[in-house]
Amino acid sequence: MKAFTYERAETITRAAAAAVKPGTKFIAGGTNLLDLMKLQVETPSQLVDINRLPLDKIEDTSDGGLRIGATVRNSDLAADPRVRRRYGVLSRALLSGASAQLRNKATTGGNLLQRTRCYYFYDVTKPCNKREPGSGCAALGGFNRIHAVLGTSELCIATHPSDMAVAMRALDANVETLDAEGKARSIPIADFHRFPARTPQIETMLKPGEIVTAVTLPPPPPGTQIYRKVRDRASYAFALVSVAAIVDAAGGRIRSARLAFGGLASKPWRVAQAEERLAGASADAEAFDGAANAVLDGARGYGHNDFKVPLARRTLRAVLTEATRA
């Protein structure tokens, strides 16, 4: 780990102001940042500890939704009675991630901003455009079993590893922030993470110093909520493919459906056309396949990860079958 100075932020405004200094990183749970600092993938010269800021509450909003503070621990969010009852897809997605020990530290903000698990990103001896812009992408011609099949560029094919963000995408969450000048804004989660395009090193819409203060959830839409995660072992493993679904169906007919996917792209993947096709359709294999076609339109494998395309299709079929079972 490279040397850094450590500061504990006393106020949110102070944290954002301190973080404009180049080389500064916020530290929340530390479960991703310290992992990367030990390998010198991340080498901040200053850490601003945000753990004692008053951002650890989950509050009801006036419109019937929830406001989740940025330092709420993943375990507390998953166990919150309101989340368990009304946002089951989020609770289940959180509980599918990492381990209980890690969830006790991991925060809402840190989870959203965790970085890819691409092996070459972690290995500082390998070329990686995300870690070192312009150096190349070792994954393109290397082992790319865990990599993306949608929204990639010729510079980077990494996925975003978060389960929580996939559920939040299905729930149309908003990310609330405060910038270094003290200005607040709200970013729809659909826009929060970016595609790699020409700049894979820029992963979100956040500006330097901008701090995530909360994530807000609108009232839950009607329907059955499911989070299904497919991985190499039954627990304590990242998703190869995951599906967050909220499906309102009755009598063999689908009224509405929301579908977000993890493990496929640099951000949670959601396709409006797939959902439009399902709305009003009868709950059968043909409709499920039509939705899968829309979701996977333009998907391409890079060799080792070719299996993700049929896996995503089958996982979606399984989820829709379960959600529409009478």
């Binding site: 479960t31 310290l34 992992d35 030990k38 381990s99 209980a100 020990q101 006790n104």
Partner: peptide, 23 residues
């Protein structure tokens, strides 16, 4: 030393955490 095994688990204010991934 990377949060992948749990051998370093301790209780922080009564809650289990990986002591290797925190300062």
């Amino acid at each position: 030393d990377h949060g992948q095994c749990g051998a370093c688990t301790v209780l922080l204010d009564g809650r289990r955490i990986n002591s290797c991934l925190t300062l």
